[in-house]
Every structure is written in structure tokens, then in C-alpha cells.
Design a protein around this nucleic acid. Structure first.
Lengths: 358, 358
DNA sequence: CTGAAAGCGCTTACAG
DNA sequence: CTGAAAGCGCTTACAG
């Protein structure tokens, strides 16, 4: 049992990944120093002879060299990465924002990293902690969050730690946390919707709002109610129903509205498209024909608004642009003041809200 | 203009991020060596006195220390990261798979990184190149891809480079590329659907399939056709319509079927739920009542199958589990042979396919 | 059980 | 314009 002396020569050291080509390899193959190779491969580097640069680039290409992002990050201290916290990617609302983030990140040469967060703040704290290890250039927080005040405090602490390290925090969504934010124009969208409906002749809305108390729900409701009031529209007592934020929630909400037998109610506004679609089903089941007998409008315009009959009026919140804007906020220098970007929402009037007589 | 001698002492070196706490800081604050601090923080490390470990952990907590993942990756050569390539996250089909990936990655202590790929192989090649820099533990490819043979070859080359570096490639979706794959059970699902419909009394199906030639579309069609034939069902000439993979595609397909006036057609099968929902609309517009007069079934069960009237029969492909399984394949040792995981799809019979007389 | 030292793959002043 | 050297923040044999 003797050891083969030939293998004894190999330095022990850490085992690296099998046959990864490194800068060293490229430099050797091109017959230059590592320093020169590094400069030749950096497009921003000035002092490289064209000849040397060409040779190194060609060698790198031939060997299939890809710089090690981790090594680069540990020397420069910077990562070309944004970390995105999403509650549930299956929610088309989130998916739309995330799509904007991915596109814009790609266009800006950044990698987007994701982690799920279960909607709960405690979970977000955990994820922020984990993500901090990656030293991302920025963290983008998406979606609604719910949790106790103490949870909220520890989230803010954890984010503060991150910003002290030089990280940037950007919110894509509701205007809840004290950071630069790309705002989803909910309030403005709700307001514009009501104004348009008024113009079409609607006068007495009922509201179906989510039964949890999120900033998003509040903004939607506020936008509706304020504009309705200012236009002299009547919101009857009991015409604001709380329900789970789902198709079935919308369905049940309309059933309870029907039982109450409101006088003169002419349009039902739901906080999401899914709820509105459920509401339409309930109307049909109650013998009411959505659109002709009573107006219906959803919100967000991400679910199948075109797939129901009649097609559903909704509000396009430009969510992909919100996601893209969040990335841009992360990339541009942060001002002393908190920044806020908001796009114009677009009301899309469809079959469920025909013009009203009179 | 004299330089302040006091500042002259500072080592020039690279500027690191403002006030990040490093292992060095923790070690100093705890009065131990970096080596000991490192070991104390590594739960798998054996030879640490409980006393020292406790002290270091407490210090780390107090300072808000988070290990630098890049530095760790450059020393160990391994990253706790999976890179996911998705074509379009807004597609609920993809979102469902990605959801499974994120969940399972989180549970396994991995970070999931995403990049979008525009469906085109050329773009995938670009993204794989970019992602290689991150040295992720694995790359997970999702969704359909289209492109020339030469594009496909360069994709395979780029992936080969990656595997030579020790990376793992896993496919979540269609059985197209020669790597470990978590299969979306399309063919099996299509087959089970037809069998169930046969049992309900349906005998003469029409097919609406996507007008592009993807592996997914092919598998669906093959599953349908084979099973139908083997059961003695009749698929009429011209009863297979190609259409864009969208609601409107489904709508138009049914119009053309109606024009052809097929005899005895008793059920329309669409390759996606969205197409099926469009098909239902077209039936109504043609004076046919979906469900009662003619059966309809979608596929995937991710869009609003419950939101139409009658509710839409579809097939649940367990997509989140497919995503999770892809992560698991990435984590377990790869066998010599290519591995393949496939779950049982679930046919969900709803209102659009009532039992047929006789 | 603990510490000093070497090394991971890069980048960037600093001298030529 | 180019190369030798130092340094980024870690981890892990190697000696005590």
C-alpha cells in the first residue's frame, strides 16, 4: 500500500469545480499576464493595445471562458444583481410586475433573484436576512404584506441594516414603507374608473372589497368613495361588502347584496377582476343580466376580462411598467428625499358597463 | 495644498461597501481568530467548544453579521443557487411551475435566480452564457423553445460547457432535451381525459391545437388521438383545427368548425384552457350551448376554469410539483442514465362535459 | 479545541 | 501599454 509518488505532487488545497476555465487559463493561453487579460476583457478599460485585446478576446471565446461572478463580486464589492421578494408568483398581479422586473433587469445587465415570502412579514424578515448574504445591488419588495407591528419593526430593522451596507430598497406596489417606490396607481385608477362611469350615466355603485385590511384595498376604496362623493353619486348604507379576495368571494358578495334588495343600485365595483367575474356569475344565478340590467367593473385587468360575456370593464394599472420602474429606481442615484414614480392608469370600458339611458 | 498626513495612513486598496460587517469584525469583537469564528458559525463544524460557539453566535447576531455569499462561493467553489430560465412568467402555466421551484428552493436553502428568454433559443443561449458566470448549482429550463437547428446546436454546446464545469441541467416541462427532466404529464393527461370522456359517452371529438409545432402541442395531440383510436372513437377529417394559442384562437377555431358542419361531433377538445374558453364563447355566439349541446374540455387547469358557465372540464398537470421535482433532481446525485420524473395528472370533470345519454 | 497561513478567482493601483 | 503584487471575504487543511 504505497502512495503513488506522482500524485503526491498535487497541491492539496480546496477542490475546485471540474475543469472550469479561469482567467489564469486565458492569460496563459494568450501568453499575457492575468492583469492584462483582465483589462483586455473589460470593455471599459482604456489602456490596452488593440492587438493584445483582440488576442485575449479570441482566446477567451475559444476556451469558452466566463468570468466568475462571485470572485468578481468579492473583489469589487458590487454585484450585478437585484433581489426580488414576491409573495405569490401565481397571482397574475404579481406575475405582471415581476415580468417587468425581469425584462428591465435583463436590459440593464442585471440578474434578478427571487424568493417567496408567504405574504407574512415575519417571513419577509427571514428572506431579507437570507438575501443580504448575496449583497445584491438592490432589493425590490412586491405585493401586500400583513403582520403585527413588532414584525413590521423587525422588517424595517433588517432593511435598515441592508441599506447601511450600501444596499438599495425599492418598493414596487403600495405606498406603505418608507423607501423609494414605484407606485401602483390604485387610487388614481379607482378614481378614474368612477369618473368614467359617472360620465356613462351610472349614479349608484355598490363596492365589493377584500375582507382584509391592506393598503391596496384601502387605496382602491378611498379612490372610489372620494370621487363618487365629489361627483354627487350615492353610496347606500350597506352597499360596501367585504369578501374574500377571490372569485367565490365576489360571488357571495353579490348574493348578500341581492338579499339586501338595494333600491336603484346601478353598478357593482369589485376590487379585483376575479371578484368581478364571480359577481357576474352570482348575478346570472339570481336572474340578473350583467351589463344590461346592472353594470359591473373589475380592477387590475390581468385576469380573463376578455373571456367573460359580456367582456368586463376594468382598469389597467401598467403593472409591468411598475416593475421596470422599480429596477430603474434601483439603478439611479437615490436622492436625499424619498422618490416616487407613478404611471397613469388606463380605464378600459367594455361590455359590462354600457352607457346608461338618461 | 498639503495632504493631511493622518489620512495618509489608510491603505489605498479597493473601496468596499460602506460599513458591511465581515467575519473579521465578528472574530475581533468575540476575541477569537477568523478561523474559529468561521467554524463556530458553521453548524456542521464539529471541533468547536460550546462556549466559544455561543459567544461567536451571539456576537454575530448583535452585529447583524451576514456571511458574504460571493466570498464563500469563491472559496468553496459552490453556490447555493439554482438558475431558472423562463420564457414568460405571465403565462400562468409557467408561473405555476416557477412557484413550485421557488418553494422547493426555499425549503432546500437555495436561492432561485431567474432570467427571461423570449421563447427563442438564440436568446436562451445568451442567457445560459450569462448565467454560467454565476456558477449556479443547477440550471432549470422551463417552457417551450422554438428555433432553428443551428440555434439548438449552440444551445446544447453552451449547456455542455456548463455541465463540464460541474453544473447540472434539469428540464421542467417537455421531454425535448437530453437532460434529467421533470416531465409535464401532457400525453398521459390527454390520454386520461379522452378515456374519461369515452366513459361519459362521448364518441366524436374535434381538436383545437396550437398552430405552432411544439413538443407540448404534439404530446397533447398524440395522447388524444392514440387513445381515441384505441377506444374506437371517430376523429373526422377536418376535425383537427390549428389556431393561435389564445382565447381568440379558440374562438376562431370553433367558427371554422361550425362552418364545416361536422356530423355527430359531440365534444371539442382544446389544448389550453384559454382556447377552450374562447371556444365556448364562439359556440354561444353560434347559438350552441356548451355543455348541454356539445361538450368542451380544456387542458392545464390553470386559468379560470371555474369562472365560466358552465365550469370547464380540464386536466390538472401538477405543475407546481413539476417545478419542485426539478429542484430535487438538481440536488440529488445524477445517475449515469438520464432521469425522468413524471407525476400522475388529474382529469377534472366539470360542467362542460355532462354524462352523455346512451 | 484553536490559530496562522494558504488559497479561491478576480481587479486595480503601482511601477516600469 | 504591461506585469508583479496586494487585496476582497471567506474556508480548510495543518500544526499545535
Amino acid at each position: 500500500m504505497t502512495t503513488d509518488p506522482a500524485t503526491d505532487d498535487q497541491p492539496p488545497g480546496i477542490r475546485t469545480r471540474p475543469s472550469t476555465v479561469t482567467l489564469r487559463d486565458v492569460a496563459d493561453a494568450a501568453g499575457v499576464s492575468k492583469a492584462s487579460a483582465s483589462r483586455a476583457l473589460d470593455p471599459r478599460s482604456q489602456y490596452v493595445s488593440p492587438e493584445l485585446r483582440a488576442r485575449v478576446m479570441e482566446t477567451a471565446r475559444r476556451l469558452g471562458y466566463r468570468p466568475n461572478a462571485s470572485a468578481r463580486a468579492t473583489t469589487t464589492g458590487a454585484t450585478a444583481m437585484v433581489a426580488v421578494l414576491v409573495s405569490d408568483i401565481r397571482d397574475p398581479y404579481n406575475a405582471e410586475i415581476v415580468h417587468g422586473v425581469i425584462e428591465q433587469a435583463g436590459a440593464s445587465g442585471l440578474v434578478a433573484t427571487f424568493a417567496g415570502t408567504d405574504h407574512a412579514i415575519d417571513d419577509e424578515v427571514r428572506v431579507v436576512r437570507m438575501m443580504r448574504s448575496l449583497r445584491p445591488h438592490a432589493m425590490i419588495l412586491t405585493g401586500a404584506r400583513s403582520g403585527s407591528t413588532v414584525s413590521r419593526t423587525s422588517l424595517e430593522e433588517e432593511l435598515a441594516r441592508y441599506t447601511q451596507e450600501g444596499g438599495r430598497v425599492v418598493i414596487a406596489g403600495d405606498d406603505e414603507l418608507p423607501f423609494d417606490t414605484a407606485v401602483v396607481p390604485r387610487r388614481r385608477g379607482a378614481s378614474a374608473l368612477v369618473a368614467d362611469l359617472f360620465r356613462l350615466g351610472y349614479r349608484s355603485p355598490a363596492l365589493i372589497r377584500p375582507d382584509h385590511d391592506s393598503a391596496a384595498a384601502r387605496e382602491w376604496e378611498d379612490g372610489i368613495v372620494e370621487t363618487a362623493r365629489s361627483l354627487g353619486m350615492r353610496i347606500e348604507y350597506g352597499a360596501v361588502v367585504r369578501a374574500p379576495m377571490s372569485r367565490d368571494g365576489g360571488y357571495d358578495a353579490v348574493r348578500s347584496l341581492v338579499e339586501q334588495r338595494h333600491e336603484g343600485l346601478d353598478v357593482v365595483l369589485a376590487a379585483t377582476d376575479a371578484m368581478a367575474i364571480g359577481a357576474m356569475s352570482a348575478m346570472r344565478d339570481a336572474g340578473l343580466s350583467p351589463g344590461t340590467e346592472i353594470g359591473v367593473a373589475g380592477f387590475d385587468d390581468v385576469v380573463g376580462t376578455e373571456d367573460v360575456t359580456p367582456t368586463l370593464t376594468s382598469v389597467d394599472l401598467a403593472l409591468a411598467r411598475v416593475g421596470a420602474a422599480a429596477v430603474e429606481l434601483a439603478l439611479t442615484e437615490s436622492a436625499a428625499d424619498r422618490r416616487r414614480v407613478e404611471f397613469e392608469p388606463r380605464v378600459i370600458l367594455r361590455g359590462t358597463t354600457p352607457a346608461r339611458h338618461g
